[in-house]
Design a protein around this nucleic acid. Structure first.
Lengths: 172, 172
DNA sequence: CAGATATGAATGAAAG
DNA sequence: CTTTCATTCATATCTG
């Protein structure tokens, strides 16, 4: 989307109210205040928040707003990035340790995306879909009432593309 | 921000080591060109396309291919993501007082509605508990016995042109 | 001030 | 449809 965000544009200002130093960065992107970061990390590490729901995001951003300008999406991105980067770092350090005893995290996906060893690349989510799907499972209903079928990468479908269809399509 | 990399014009074989400059896109993932994005948004906002059918995807990707390498799945994912993010953004931006099943606003342009069969249009989804909703075939008479064969390239069919087909043609 | 690093923002891909 | 993950881009911040 080109609809760039940016709160403000002009008001700016409310940085470091309590934190101390002020920085007036009146443009592009959200720069969290120290208090905001403190609370975010507290939520992350002490409360185990990783991927807050929309409702949580609203609550969190509302709470953080007293420390500076902030939007819901800033909170959303913060957790996304923080989680992703924590995992990213862990990816490079955990190589050998198979079952890493979860440190503080409560629900970390055990699987790790391998970037490290080119020899043993674990495809994302355990053997995705190599077997199982034989020939287009979608055609079963076609007999009844054949609507327009179309070809998509060699497969025939009718109507809406579902994930099964897409999956099948990707295999072939 | 659509200031993304530019078209490769048919790299096909991999990274464009041909002409040489720019295009550091050795990644495997599709990077839409600005023209492709422009058209996709046009379809999305001006034509109300949200969840294109396999047919539509086929035609859209074919059309976009002249601006750069693209596959059907890219179009599929693009609409899925664009729609999801539009909704998501609204979700943690607005208050949750809804309680009513706030459907995603499928804003169809009046033009589109006029061409479509009024009774045939199925709203895109349902919300939380929608299990596998199947989409009732909009084009009951499209190819009743034709057994497919809509070679989109030349657009040949056995039956007559339906309104949906016409609409597709007009849009694309 | 330049280069390196940290991190906000965006989005393609895919799982759930 | 919803949510998550990986990657990448852009920029603020830090460091020499």
């Amino acid at each position: 989307m080109e609809a760039q965000q940016n709160d403000d544009g002009g008001s700016s200002g409310g940085k470091g109210s309590t934190g101390g130093f002020l920085c007036r960065q009146s443009s592009t992107r959200w720069t969290p205040t120290t208090d905001q970061i403190r609370i975010l990390k507290e939520l992350y590490y002490n409360n185990g928040v990783r991927s807050p729901t929309a409702e949580q995001i609203q609550r969190i951003s509302a709470r953080l707003r007293q420390y500076g300008k902030i939007e819901g999406k800033n909170v959303f991105y913060w957790f996304q990035n923080h989680k992703a980067r924590e995992r990213q770092k862990k990816r490079f350090t955990t190589t050998t340790t198979t079952a890493s005893t979860t440190n503080d995290d409560n629900n970390q996906t055990p699987m790790q995306r391998g970037i490290m060893l080119p020899t043993a690349w674990k495809p994302d989510h355990h053997q995705s879909f190599n077997h199982n799907i034989k020939y287009s499972p979608v055609v079963s209903s076609t007999a009844l009432n054949s609507s327009a079928t179309s070809m998509l990468g060699g497969l025939k479908f009718n109507g809406q593309l579902t994930r099964v269809m897409l999956r099948t399509w990707l295999i072939l």
